[in-house]
Design a protein around this nucleic acid. Structure first.
Length: 996
RNA sequence: GGUUCAGUGGUGGAAUUGGUAUACACGCGACACUUAAAAUGUCGUGCCUAAAAGGCAUGUGGGUUCGAGUCCCACCUGAACCACCA
């Protein structure tokens, strides 16, 4: 055998490995430290593995093999997310039962995985469509049901006409079905939900009896809790982008509810029911939710969602009820997509009703409009057209008044970014600017005056007259303006307001005075650069830079378009006693006032809604619920699980679950009274199956529990989880929810399932587009393995670039990897068997490279930087190739380091060297930190930062010696001749830089 | 529209986190072996310049620094996700 022949080597070792389970099996009894390394279990489609699967599975395979060689007890299982719509749709088309197609697909997937040499512990294989598995999915449903976390409710839900089923909010993209891209309709249906919203914030521990030491203890209250879906994100090692997506999806927003008194335009209100108003105090109010309480003085009307109950409740008082009704009808038929796409806001005034702003006591008109969502907040909003874009659009269309109550602050303090930590003050202690007022035809002079540091931190005198006078006289000096009227002075502590970088906050101690400039005087401003932006800065040329980016854009818009909404925080104006406060301060004070007067309260709202889990489809786990004529909703007793999927069904979707038409399935006896009853015919969303599967790997055959408590303790949580970023909200959020439920009920003592998460980037086709069958640009792993072998494909996919990046496939690239493996193979010929073990020290340079390579490969695997690990192995191989004779220790080391990447070749070479045991039984090598260091380095000689010469030198050369060397260099001398040396910078082991 | 990330040779990508820019690989070119091709091997390969010396180069323009691909500001381009959530 002198030619590298993966076709022969690879199947040979795959067969031999199969016979040695200790190479890949997880040991329940081992005392070694555990590592649970997990791939997202795939949906076994008929297409087989694609390049993306190969990429992420190779990554986890490398890490698993590495940790095993490190002596860790590794759990690296694989399974099948087998339920789901594609299999069912395929069954509808071909009339072949999904169980059968799934089985075939799994068989093919498994073949391909073995072909790739993935070392999975197949003894723990699981399949979510197996009754032994979904028995426990049903058990989880009952667990949630019994703890009040699963409920059935009639609600507006997303309905896909093409899939003929309801969808979770998470499965609707752009108003379309995630799967078939059909527009989603809103439908009123009774459906099952999981109370995922209960776990957004930290939750008090539900079960004290079961818990041993589970749960976190709050230091202040001493209470034990489960960390919420939000706060839990802070403690796990996940990509920041993924955490962001989850936070955005949960969409927490802090605000307040405000009660607007409802008054009737007509004096004798009679309700539809015949009662006179008011019945109770409660009903007199329209409750709205807002995050911008500070803008309430600018509220000019209120809007309710078309579905809001106020319309029914006050039917008789609405004088234009017919018109309102007509509008509601026109909106009803619209899908979410239509509503979103409609660029122009529509609505109708509800005449006969008015609401009263509790702050101003103004009577305001009420509207119904579909830009207000009934499901969010209270389904009603206070409209502030001056400071909210939607309200502004609406007000423009219906010609409603617009009152500005927030004043933008335009200025940031110039030069702050140049201030260093050791300089306590800004260079300039006073800045003057003139701004054209955004609304009026007048100019405002702004004067910044620095408050000294001590006064600033102690608070200092609030209304320091002399300070104002000083400011005034400075303005006079600089501009000659006399008629300055002080409009307001900004409060002092508003660094956030100036948009100053956080680290510079402590420099933001300036007081700002607003002076209004009388009109006659502003005529004299001679240097107005009207062409440019009609904003003139007087005291500095570069003062324009003081504008915050946001304000800069804003000023532009105002001046160009005449008017524009200002939606950011600012300072309040025309708001009674709140005027002059910043938005943040005002929100705080106004909320206090509301609570004191019982007219509202602080409130937190979320975008996340409860998870809709029922589906009107066949290929899923049946919901274990029975409806009895007498007893009502009855959960299936645990001992009767699993509720098996019937086989006597027609798959054709009708809009009702196919299970409804199975007589054998539908008709049952009530488990409580034995009377006539029917089964729930809906199945569960497949994401329910995948929300708990990782627990099952700990104990996949258990018939009494979803997994043994001790085994869960042994193996979980998952140490490393790798999968696509497309699951960032769906699967990953649901799985966290399930884990938190188990924790809260005392089943487990951790509340986050996946400690470390990484995504693999998509592999694009060679043309940079997504691989797809219709484009005909799909790379099939089977073909590549046939051409190059699995080892080449594995390494190539890892070598292409960082794991998480999107990378285009390059057909020609794989040959380089093949050549590399071939070179490693051929090196065997040059191996010298030493008489007396390793004889290091002969070739110091090579020894150093050996240890550098161990270090680099080890660190890169741990950090999952496989591309650079492989590059280092290539450098090492190239270096060995230059030697006439290769010491066997060096060669064995190369094979050991290569083995996680190219298991087949490594095993073959290891065996050919006369080793009887597997290379994977070998201990992962350690490096000697002393040998990693270079004894001799190339000292870089720079003049003014430019490289002029390189000289070989001792690694721990002293500064004195280095200086001598520099000055001895002719090239350096040529550049410094005749000039004075100002400074010499010395970086040990690297460079000397001469500054002239 | 918003948020986030990115932009380095002909290509995929490196760069010890502020210290020799372009490691490793593909591709390309020359040469060797061969009747020839493939395979393999050797050498070369950012741009300007015949070459050396030198200069210019990390999307563009500024800034900080002895020194910037890396830090700061603005702009341009691209990608991903979210999008009436008050």
């Amino acid at each position: 055998m002198d030619k590298y022949n993966p076709k022969f080597i690879e199947p040979k070792w795959q067969k031999l490995w199969e016979e040695k389970p200790d190479l890949y099996a997880a040991d329940n009894d081992s005392q070694e430290e555990k590592r649970f390394i997990l791939d997202m279990f795939p949906y076994p489609s008929g297409e087989g593995l694609h390049t993306g699967h190969v990429e992420s599975y190779t990554a986890t395979d490398i890490v698993s093999r590495y940790f095993r060689m490190k002596g860790k007890n590794v759990l690296h299982p694989q399974g099948w997310d087998a339920f789901g719509l594609p299999a069912e749709n395929y069954a509808i088309k071909t009339k072949i039962h999904p169980e059968k197609t799934t089985k075939t697909a799994i068989h093919n997937f498994k073949r391909q995985m073995n072909m790739m040499g993935f070392a999975y512990d197949w003894s723990r294989e699981l399949n979510s469509s197996d009754p032994e598995y979904y028995k426990w999915t049903q058990w989880f449903f009952l667990l949630l049901y019994k703890n009040g976390l699963a409920y059935k409710k009639k609600a507006k839900v997303n309905w896909c006409d093409s899939c003929k089923t309801v969808l979770a909010n998470e499965q609707v993209e752009d108003g379309k079905c995630e799967r078939c891209k059909n527009p989603v309709r809103q439908k009123d249906l009774e459906q099952w939900f999981f109370k995922i919203t209960d776990f957004i914030e930290n939750k008090l521990f539900a079960s004290r009896t079961r818990a041993t030491n589970a749960g976190h203890t709050n230091e202040k209250s001493g209470k034990t809790y489960t960390s919420g879906l939000l706060s839990g994100l802070d403690k796990i090692d996940w990509p920041e982008s993924t955490k962001m997506l989850q936070r955005n999806w949960i969409g927490r927003s802090e605000g307040a509810t405000v009660k607007f008194k409802i008054v009737s335009a007509e004096p004798s209100p009679v309700r539809s029911t015949g009662h006179t108003l008011p019945i109770t105090g409660e009903e007199e109010y329209l409750e709205v939710f807002t995050t911008r309480l500070d803008t309430i003085y600018g509220c000019n009307y209120a809007v309710v969602a078309p579905e809001h109950k106020i319309i029914d409740d006050y039917k008789s008082q609405i004088t234009n009820y017919d018109e309102v009704r007509k509008y509601l009808e026109s909106v009803k038929g619209k899908s979410d997509l239509d509503r979103m796409e409609a660029k122009i806001k529509t609505g109708v005034e509800i005449k006969g009703l008015k609401v009263i702003n509790p702050f101003t006591n103004e009577e305001l008109p009420l509207y119904a409009a579909d830009y207000v969502l009934s499901q969010y907040g209270t389904g009603a909003v206070m409209a502030v057209p001056a400071h909210d874009e939607r309200d502004w659009e609406f007000a423009k269309k219906y010609n409603l008044p617009i009152n500005q109550t927030i004043e933008p602050c335009f200025i940031t303090i110039n030069g702050l970014d140049k201030v260093r930590e050791d300089q306590p003050f800004v260079e300039r202690d006073s800045i003057t600017a003139i701004v054209k007022h955004w609304k009026e035809e007048s100019y405002i002079v702004l004067k910044w005056k620095q408050v000294d540091w001590k006064t600033f931190i102690t608070g200092g005198p609030e209304n320091d007259q002399s300070f104002e006078e000083a400011a005034r006289s400075e303005v006079l000096e600089e501009t000659g303006y006399k008629n300055l009227k002080l409009i307001r002075e900004l409060p002092r502590y508003h660094s956030q307001f100036y948009h100053i970088p956080k680290k510079l906050n402590r420099f933001a101690h300036m007081r700002v005075f607003y002076f209004k400039l009388e009109n006659d005087e502003h005529q004299d401003i001679s240097d107005i650069d009207k062409e440019r932006h009609e904003v003139v800065w007087v005291s500095e040329n570069d003062i324009e830079k003081m504008l915050t980016p946001e304000a800069h854009k804003y000023v532009w818009k105002v001046l160009k378009d005449g008017e524009k909404v200002f939606t950011s925080d600012g300072v309040l104006i025309d708001s009674d006693e709140y005027s002059g406060l910043t938005s943040e301060e005002a929100r705080e004070k106004m909320a206090e006032w509301l609570e004191k007067n019982n007219l509202g309260a602080r409130k937190v709202n979320y975008k996340l809604r409860d998870w809709l889990v029922s589906r009107q489809r066949y290929w899923g786990a049946p919901i274990p619920i029975i409806y009895c004529e007498k007893c009502g909703t009855v959960p299936v007793p645990e001992e009767d699980l699993p509720v098996k999927l019937p086989t006597d069904v027609d798959f054709l979707p009708t809009g009702e679950s196919p299970l409804k038409y199975s007589k054998s399935f539908q008709n049952v006896k009530c488990p409580v009274c034995g009377g006539k009853a029917t089964r729930e015919s809906d199945t569960m969303d497949t994401f329910v199956c995948s929300s708990w599967y990782y627990f099952r790997y700990a104990d996949p055959k258990n018939e009494k529990e979803f997994a043994d408590k001790e085994l869960i303790k042994k193996w979980l949580p998952v140490d490393l989880y790798v999968g696509g970023a497309e699951h960032s909200v769906l699967h990953l959020l649901y799985a966290r929810f399930f884990t938190k439920v188990l924790h809260n009920l005392g089943y487990i003592d951790f509340d986050e399932p996946f400690l470390k998460l990484r995504h693999q980037g998509i592999i694009l086709s060679e043309d940079g587009r997504k691989m797809s069958k219709s484009l005909g640009n799909v790379v099939n792993p089977d073909d590549e393995v046939k051409k190059w072998g699995a080892d080449s494909l594995r390494i190539f996919e890892m070598f292409m670039g960082p794991l998480e990046d999107a990378k285009p496939w390059n057909t020609k690239g794989i040959v380089g990897v093949y050549r590399f493996l071939e070179k490693v193979y051929k090196l065997a010929k040059a191996v010298r068997i030493e008489a007396n073990g390793s004889k290091s020290g002969i070739n110091k340079k090579l020894d150093s490279l050996v240890h550098k390579t161990i270090k680099k490969v080890t660190e890169d695997i741990e950090a999952m930087r496989f591309n650079t690990a492989i590059s280092q192995l290539m450098i090492f191989t190239n270096e060995l190739d230059k030697e006439k004779e290769i010491p066997i220790t060096n060669y064995q080391l190369l094979i050991t380091l290569l083995s996680p990447f190219a298991p087949h070749l490594s095993e073959e070479l290891w065996n050919s060297l006369g080793n009887k045991d597997s290379v994977f039984k070998e201990k992962w090598p350690e490096y000697d930190p002393e040998l990693v260091k270079d004894e001799e380095i190339e000292l870089v000689l720079q003049v003014n930062g430019k490289v002029r010469d390189r000289i070989k030198a001792d690694a721990d050369l002293s500064e004195e010696e280095a200086k001598k060397i520099v000055l001895a260099s002719e090239k350096v001398r040529a550049h410094i001749s005749g000039k004075e040396i100002k400074k010499v910078i010395f970086v040990k082991g690297r460079l000397v830089n001469i500054v002239i």
